[in-house]
Amino acid sequence: MPEYEPEPTEMPSVDSLCEMESSIKSLALLPTTADLDKRMVELFSQAMSESKPLPAVKRGKRVELLVAVAASLLIGFGAGSWYGSSRVDTGAMSVGVRSTEEGGVDPTSKSSSGSMSKRTGDLESNSLAEATEGSNDRPQTKVVSRNTVLSRPLWLRSKEGQMYRSYIAHTKEDLLEVDPVTQKARAVQRVTPRIVISNTPGI
């Protein structure tokens, strides 16, 4: 028996507006990328850990939601998640250093650069060293490898007004220093500070 094949131009019944709606609804939206989900989980987890909950806000519930969000997004927390793919030219980076300590702004505002400025607030000093100091409760440093320690995040604003997460990385190096006179070698440890800037804009 020949297999029945419908005409390719046969139109599904679209009689009413409701059916039209359901036809449009049948077009599935693409899922969000893992990169975005990862960044969002990180954002919310950071926000939830920083906010001081009232006694009524049960910690268990917050953790539960966080786990639910993470589970629904099917991702976990990853160290170095800020180190995203390069889609933006970071060459236009300015030296303005911002902290995240200051107050907020109406997110419905259309001016992103202005709102960023209000949200992040200007530091009193442009010194990177001073920028790392603050009255933040968060840990000041983060050990990322055997010999590298990262400072807490700093924020760099590009000329386009986008914010880039950055860190000051202190890398310890074990060197052999040879005395030119005696030719004796001795082990010394050198700490090299360098700035690490995220490739991806955003907080």
């Binding site: 960044r39 969002m40 954002l43 907020g104 992103s112 949200r119």
Partner: peptide, 11 residues
């Protein structure tokens, strides 16, 4: 992401 970051951090 940027919009949510602003909303999360705003006071």
């Amino acid at each position: 992401h940027d919009a949510f970051a602003r909303m999360v951090q705003t006071r």
